[in-house]
């Protein structure tokens, strides 16, 4: 028994195969993307920077302006991020030191600044959060 393959049939099969490949590729790429770590900097609920981080990256220095001359200097390097300097009254953000694992945050309450790490990777933190 022979089934004649018409041009139209071949086109439909070909189209289906291409779609399948594109869909799987898309899913793979999206999935892979969320594995990378990003430093996300938010000022008063607005995301103002998102920087991919990894070991051996070029250092990035950012001066985040909180208005009225208030600022935080954020340094992103070597797969970690810290606040180098700030003119907030409590200096808690500077004292927080460097963070490098997904889920960790640095907060500057007076300037409404949040620096956090998203994505997977980094050494996993040994706790899910800290009560303070």
């Amino acid at each position: 028994m022979r089934i004649p393959l018409k041009i139209g049939d071949a086109f439909v099969y070909g189209f289906a195969v291409v779609l399948v490949i594109i869909s799987f590729a898309g899913m793979y790429l999206m999935g892979a993307k969320s594995d990378r770590r990003h430093v996300v900097i938010e000022m008063d609920k607005r995301e103002i920077y998102s920087i991919e981080i990894h070991e051996g990256m070029e250092p990035v220095e950012l001066r985040v302006d909180a208005g009225d001359g208030r600022y935080n200097e954020v340094v992103v390097m070597n797969g970690e991020v810290r606040i180098e300097e700030a003119n907030c009254p409590d200096q808690l953000c500077v004292k927080s030191g460097a963070i490098r694992s997904s889920g960790q945050t640095i907060v500057c309450l007076p300037h409404k600044l949040v620096v956090r790490i998203t994505g997977a990777g980094g050494e996993p933190s040994d706790v899910d959060d800290i009560a303070h």
């Binding site: 200096q91 808690l92 004292k95 927080s96 030191g97 960790q104 040994d126 706790v127 899910d128 959060d129 800290i130 009560a131 303070h132």
Partner: peptide, 12 residues
Amino acid sequence: IGIQDPRSDGVQ
């Protein structure tokens, strides 16, 4: 859940 070190001078 970690319990904050009261004498870490702000470090988590």
